[in-house]
Each structure stands twice: as structure tokens, then as C-alpha cells.
Design a protein around this nucleic acid. Structure first.
Lengths: 149, 149
DNA sequence: ACTTGACTTAAAGTTAACTTTAACTTGTAT
DNA sequence: ATACAAGTTAAAGTTAACTTTAAGTCAAGT
């Protein structure tokens, strides 16, 4: 089975232009061309899924290109690719942790506004602040000293 | 207790320039000025934490500004702010889900490369692909029909 | 009085990731 | 044969989110 750029774009939820841009940046290796047109085959899907993942975790295009280039060099770069994957795994974990902390903050806000709406005014809740510390600020001890030279 | 822009920047892990930029975009309401200089007080911290959260969940500055403006209008906008919070909560959930799916993909890759490195070559594993479907691609039924007009 | 260091603004510059435009090719339908 | 739809490239344009620069203010220390 083979697919046109339009079909692949639809499946990936992006525009054909973006796919062409990715190709121009070297993110789509091994994509065939027939009569000058890109033709995507089943084997390309495996990579498209990974590419999609890499985009989802906010890997910059430069970094993805780096990975693609390593992969094209074959077995000699296995260790390097492994390291890159581990590094990205950590980054994902960090992002998930951050999002979970923020989710708590937003759950607090949800309660905050629900309560305020019921009371008709924010005054009822405005001195209450979320407990979850997301910022260094919340970790500052009470006797925090500013740095003096 | 009051803090200079430099101290706040350090605490938030950004540069003073970025804080000034945020201020110029209206993201730092109610920040005092003494002799033309910004002075941050304890009461500003509550908002800085929320701002930090909003940045972490990739809320665009425009959207954050929108929220700030609503908040400044007082009780009349409680419902609107509540809705905005709910909307963002959903967005966070979606992001967490995406990241978790990608984490699985990367955990597969970790195994993939570990196995390949042990064997000395990728050939041992290269036909195996992760099972977790992250892309519409993986949900396409075998008898997928392209659209015909 | 003068230098220093930390601040200020306004405006221009940067970067990443697209997006749009313009001019062109090609296979299919009428 | 001709028109049309869908693709192509190269290059210019856009947008968000900063970052840098230049020129200036201000309080404290020597």
C-alpha cells in the first residue's frame, strides 16, 4: 500500500507543506519519489510514528535530524542513539512531572473559582493559595538571605 | 520582604529581560515601582507561581494575558475564568496522555537499542516495532480505503 | 565630585518552526 | 486537445517568544 503526501498529512494531522518542510530538513529519509512526487509506503509508517512522538515531546528539529543522521550511519552509532534515547526519556519524565504539578495547581484553581462563584465573590477565597510548591519561591526558607558580595 | 528583578529572575530560572518582557506584555500586574525600579513583594509570589505553571503547560502569552485581564475586572468575570481554567485542565490532561504514550515508545526504543548493542547489530531487532499506537496510522484498518470523490 | 553597578525604556535583532507564494510539471477526466 | 487537481521547488513571509543593544537614571561607596 502506498500513500500520497496529502493522505499522510491528514493521518498525521499536519499540512502537506509541513511534511515537505520536514523532508527538506532531512527528517524523512528514504521516502521514494515517483514522477517527482513523494510516495509513502508502509515501511515509512514506523518512522512517522516515531517522528510524531519526537515532535510531541518537543524535541527540536535539529535534534531529530541528529538522530536521523546517526541512524543512517548504521550499527556504528547504536550506542550514541541509545544515549540519545535515554536522554529524551529523562526529558519526558521531567515534563510529565511538571505537568502533574501544574495540574494540581489548576485543580486548586477549579475549586477556588467554583467556591467563589457560589459565594458570588472572590473575597471568600482570595487569601487561600494552593499548597503545592511549583516554584523555587515556595522553597525559600523564612529566613532567606539575599546574596551579599 | 521585597525582592529585586534580579532575585526574582533567579528564583524563576529566567533572565531579568524576560521578566521585563512579561511585564511589558501585561503579565505582571500590580508590580510596584520604587524610583522607577520594579519591586516584587510576597503577595506577587502567588501570581508568579501560577504564571510559572501557565508557562509550563505551554499556554501562549496571549492566553495568559487574557486571564490576567479577566482577573483585573473582578467578580464579574469569575465564570469566564473558571471556564478558562477547565479548558486548560483538559489541555494538561491531553499533554500528559501524549507524553505517556511517547514514553512507552521511548521505553521500547531503549530495549531495542540495548538488544542491538548486545548483538552488535541492529539486524536482530529492526523488524520489530513498538506496539503502542500513537498515530492515526496505527488505527487504520487493514482494508483502509483512500477517499475517492 | 565621581565612578560603579544595577536598574530603566524603546527599538531592533534573533531563532525556530512553520506558511505562503509563484512558477512549473504531470496524470486523469471531459 | 484541453482543463483541472494535485503535486513539485525555491524563496520570501510570518509568528511567538524572547534577546540584545543603546542610551539613560539613580543610589551608594570612595
Amino acid at each position: 500500500m502506498s500513500y500520497s503526501i496529502k493522505e499522510i498529512a491528514k493521518i498525521m494531522g499536519i499540512t502537506p507543506s509541513t511534511l515537505r518542510y520536514y523532508d527538506s530538513e532531512g527528517l524523512l529519509p528514504n521516502v521514494k519519489k515517483v514522477n517527482g512526487r513523494r510516495v509513502f509506503e508502509d515501511k515509512d509508517f514506523k518512522w512517522l510514528r516515531v517522528l510524531n512522538c519526537m515532535k510531541n515531546i518537543n524535541m527540536p528539529i535539529k535534534k531529530i535530524k541528529e538522530y536521523v543522521k546517526l541512524a543512517q550511519k548504521g550499527d556504528a552509532t547504536l550506542q550514541e542513539r541509545y544515549n540519545l534515547i535515554l536522554q529524551q526519556k529523562e526529558s519526558i519524565q521531567k515534563q510529565i512531572n511538571e505537568l502533574n504539578t501544574c495540574l494540581k495547581e489548576f485543580e486548586f484553581k477549579e475549586w477556588y473559582y467554583k467556591t467563589a462563584i457560589e459565594a458570588g465573590t472572590e473575597k471568600v477565597v482570595e487569601n487561600i493559595s494552593s499548597i503545592s510548591p511549583t516554584l523555587e519561591i515556595d522553597k525559600i526558607p523564612k529566613n532567606y538571605k539575599k546574596e551579599g558580595k
